[in-house]
């Protein structure tokens, strides 16, 4: 049984989460529901929950305001939001869980399955750090949480040289010479990073345009990265690549 609280300023949203949790009586033990940030903080101190369903917009404050005021976050957080694009992007970067309202039964089920796995509290703290960091800084300075076989790695986006797809895995190469392997697909990173100077030059390569040192012409041509690695540019991506590349340099 997971000790759970719900923080949401709209009663009907709270009701929906209550309804959904009630269909998993063996999993959730809902201790309380709160409709302001202040009440949520008090409730958290008092009830010591293991899981918080946290709304993003709470009155004129946010769920982030709530988290900032908790000294030791030793519980899991699942954000709930309707359409705050910036927040959803931030969750994706930090690999924090979120549910989109109105909450779909199947999505909720997937979340329940995830919750039953063991969560490292240190990872959670780092993820939330990444979240706060990204909410503060501009695009290029963002950090990203990457799930690996033994926990999470937290990387500055501007440290990534390129990503390489390997069937269902992705290898991420950083400028410090590290190689990080994750079970997320390259497409996931493409979606996440395409607004941050990253470009998919090839079906299996996503490169950080800031580290492309040279482009050599050819049918599609190839790029040379800062670590001297040559990466082919797909013929169909050539034109767009050149446009993006020139825009940056």
């Amino acid at each position: 049984m997971i000790k759970t609280i719900i923080i949401d300023d709209e009663q009907h949203c709270t009701d929906v989460v209550l309804k959904l949790t009630s269909s998993y009586p063996d999993v959730f033990n809902v201790l309380g529901t709160f409709n302001t940030v202040e009440a949520g903080i008090e409730g958290t101190k008092f009830l010591q929950p293991e899981l918080v369903f946290l709304d993003v917009m709470i009155g004129n404050q946010t769920g982030f305001d709530y988290l900032k005021q908790i000294e030791h976050i030793n519980f899991n957080v699942i954000f709930t939001t309707a359409f705050e694009t910036y927040a959803v992007e931030a969750f994706r970067f930090s690999a924090l869980d979120y549910l989109l309202k109105p909450i779909d039964k199947d999505d909720f089920h997937a979340t329940v399955l995830k919750l039953q796995k063991v969560v490292e509290t240190s990872d959670l703290k780092n993820k939330i750090d990444v979240l706060f960091h990204n909410l503060k800084v501009k695009n290029a300075l963002k950090r990203i949480s990457i799930a690996t076989s033994d926990g999470y790695v937290f990387v500055e986006v501007s440290d990534i040289l390129y990503c390489n797809a390997d069937v269902n895995y992705t290898h991420i190469y950083t400028k410090h010479g590290e190689k990080i392997t994750t079970s997320k697909t390259l497409k996931t990173f493409d979606k996440l990073l395409s607004n941050n100077h990253f470009f998919r030059v090839h079906n299996s390569y996503l490169v950080n345009l800031n580290y492309v040192t040279k482009y050599t012409k050819g049918k599609g041509g190839y790029v040379t990265m800062q670590d001297n690695k040559n990466i082919d540019v797909s013929v169909r991506r050539k034109e767009e690549f050149i446009q993006r590349f020139i825009k940056i340099s």
């Binding site: 929906v16 989109l100 109105p102 909450i103 779909d104 039964k105 999505d107």
Partner: peptide
């Protein structure tokens, strides 16, 4: 609720 969540998706 089933219908609504599918619709919003």
């Amino acid at each position: 609720t089933n219908y609504l969540t599918k619709f919003s998706k």
